[in-house]
Design a binder for these strands. Sequence first.
DNA 1: GCTCGCATTTCGTGATCACAATAGCATTGA
DNA 2: TCAATGCTATTGTGATCACGAAATGCGAGC
Lengths: 239, 239
Amino acid sequence: MNSPDPSPEPPPLEEQAYRRLRQALVEGTFAPGDKLSLRRVATALGTSPMPVRAALRRLAAEQALDITASGTAIVPRLTRAAFLELGEVRAALEPLALRLAVPQLDAATLEALEQLLAGHAGTRTGGKPEEFLRVDREFLFTLYRRAEAPLLLGMIESLWLRRGPLFWEARWMLMSRPAEQAHRHAQILEALRAGEGARAAEELETEIRDATAFLLKEIRFAGDAGAGPEGLPLLRPNR
Amino acid sequence: MNSPDPSPEPPPLEEQAYRRLRQALVEGTFAPGDKLSLRRVATALGTSPMPVRAALRRLAAEQALDITASGTAIVPRLTRAAFLELGEVRAALEPLALRLAVPQLDAATLEALEQLLAGHAGTRTGGKPEEFLRVDREFLFTLYRRAEAPLLLGMIESLWLRRGPLFWEARWMLMSRPAEQAHRHAQILEALRAGEGARAAEELETEIRDATAFLLKEIRFAGDAGAGPEGLPLLRPNR
DNA sequence: GCTCGCATTTCGTGATCACAATAGCATTGA
DNA sequence: TCAATGCTATTGTGATCACGAAATGCGAGC
């Protein structure tokens, strides 16, 4: 209907900076504990520090970044308690989004989910964890978007964003989880096809709890014994 | 322990602007639909537009304000669907916070809650809805803070902030609710004293759902029939 | 070899300015 | 009387600069 619109009204610089930083966060460009300096990021993006400042503070307000006492933005370094809390909140919000989405599901959406799952098994045997996790994420967010609950969707995205850097570091470990776990999405889809939204929501909640418990067991967190009191206490010993 | 610290290191202007705007939002200084212009607020606060811009965008990132296509910040005007969604999210998060708080409760906290409830009944008969609602809020947040879950607490505060302006307009109506409703906090406290955290959480959830349903029934929302397509569609006919 | 202290650099904050886009609003025309 | 139109004031964006504080790196001394 609408024309191709040859001048797509370029978004403000702050918006561009925000999106680039956000994607970099999800893609693991930054490691937990990294400091994001205004002028450094600004020169890297080719703008003045001004839009970068706005973007960084916006991400901080969304809990995707932390701000030190001196005002510098740093990539969050999750403690064990913080990660557990994050799992609890996810376990409360994401099944809610799923329940809200159930009445809105149509055949086309279910088919799209099916196709995502089909490709899923393929990428799993291949050695690309990023693709594997991306499909996982797409499966869930396809459902969450159907809830048509913008406030809730924004909160869930914020949670995933905060978890992003840690997930990136743990991506190899996540791939090595038992295959039974990988089929949980199939069970969710099956429950949705059967119209049992409540069961699907329960499946999702246990999946979130299992994944959280798995990472709590396998990963070193900030503040753990054996982790340096200052340096990067996560997967890799140093960098 | 810490000294009186005669120079309490005044917070940055952005932080001051943020707090003042936040409080004004809770206290109903602004009505839903009001436009908050950078320079207007800046001159009102006696600063340059710069800290105000940061504060407004921060509130917008927390979903406490909306941003129009032209970048102007406006006080959110909730639709019926948005308010219902807000209630659903509250019903998911706040009982969770309560459950997390249960293991941390001690006698002193329970006593403080008791005293809040005692003063509650008094303010209820008096004609001051603001005080009544403030005590209500304090009761719940005293519990939520005990959960020691900063992420969750921040999200709950964000939800209350978004609901703030509407609640302010509806404050007289909220006071007129059946007295039975007012005793729900007492029931929660009783369940907590008995160590039945699950029951307390259930009570809280039904309280949130009842309050949401009550307002959905009694209040005019944005987009309702009979509300002007543009103007302030809320309680007062115009201004 | 290690630690402490100082100087230099870099940082975030906030003000001011230029600019383009927007929103109000009075005027004009039907 | 009402709607379309043009102008004007105001808006948000973004760049640049000044300032004080924090962090960094280097050198001297133990």
